[in-house]
Amino acid sequence: MSTDTTPNPEPSEPVEPTAPVEPTGSADPTDPDTAPETAPETAGDAVAAPKPDRKRAWQVGAALLLTLVTGAATAVAVTLPDRTDLPGLATPNDGRYTFPELTLPPLPAGASAPAEYKIKTHAADLRGLLLPLPKGAVGTGPSAAPSATGSASPSASPSPSASESANASVSASASASLPPVAGRWMPCDLDMMLAKDESYGQWLISDACRGAAAQGWTAKDGTRTELRLIHFGSQDEAGHFFSSVNLMPATKDIENSQTDFKGNYAVALGQVNVRLSDAEADGVPTGRIGWVQCGDVVALVQMTNPHGVPSQAFHQVVLLQSSLLV
Rank of each mutant, 00 (worst) to 15 (best):
A57I: 13
A57N: 09
A57D: 12
W58S: 09
W58C: 01
W58L: 14
Q59C: 04
Q59W: 06
Q59L: 15
V60I: 15
V60C: 02
V60H: 07
G61I: 05
A63R: 03
A63G: 08
A63C: 03
L64C: 10
L65T: 14
T67C: 14
V69S: 11
V69D: 04
V69C: 11
T70A: 14
T70H: 00
G71S: 13
G71D: 07
A72S: 08
A73Y: 03
A73T: 13
A73E: 07
A73C: 13
T74C: 13
V76F: 02
V76C: 02
A77F: 12
A77R: 14
A77I: 13
A77H: 09
V78Y: 06
V78I: 14
V78H: 07
V78D: 05
T79E: 07
T79R: 14
L80E: 11
P81G: 03
D82I: 00
D82R: 09
D82P: 01
R83M: 08
R83N: 04
D85R: 07
D85N: 10
L86F: 01
L86V: 14
P87D: 15
G88I: 04
G88R: 03
G88Q: 05
G88L: 05
G88K: 06
L89H: 08
A90V: 06
A90R: 11
T91L: 04
T91S: 04
T91F: 00
T91R: 07
P92A: 09
P92K: 03
P92R: 09
N93H: 14
N93I: 06
D94A: 09
G95Q: 10
G95D: 11
R96K: 11
Y97A: 15
Y97K: 04
F99S: 11
F99A: 09
F99D: 11
F99V: 09
P100F: 03
P100R: 05
E101A: 12
E101W: 01
E101L: 06
L102Q: 05
L102C: 04
T103C: 00
T103Q: 13
L104P: 04
L104H: 10
P105W: 04
P105C: 07
P105S: 07
P106M: 08
L107F: 03
L107W: 08
L107P: 05
P108V: 07
P108N: 05
P108R: 04
P108H: 07
P108Q: 06
A109F: 02
A109P: 01
G110D: 11
G110T: 01
G110V: 01
G110Q: 03
A111K: 07
A111I: 02
A111W: 00
A111T: 03
S112H: 03
A113K: 03
A113C: 00
A113F: 02
P114I: 08
P114C: 10
E116R: 13
E116Q: 15
E116S: 15
E116V: 08
E116G: 06
Y117F: 15
Y117I: 05
K118Q: 13
K118R: 14
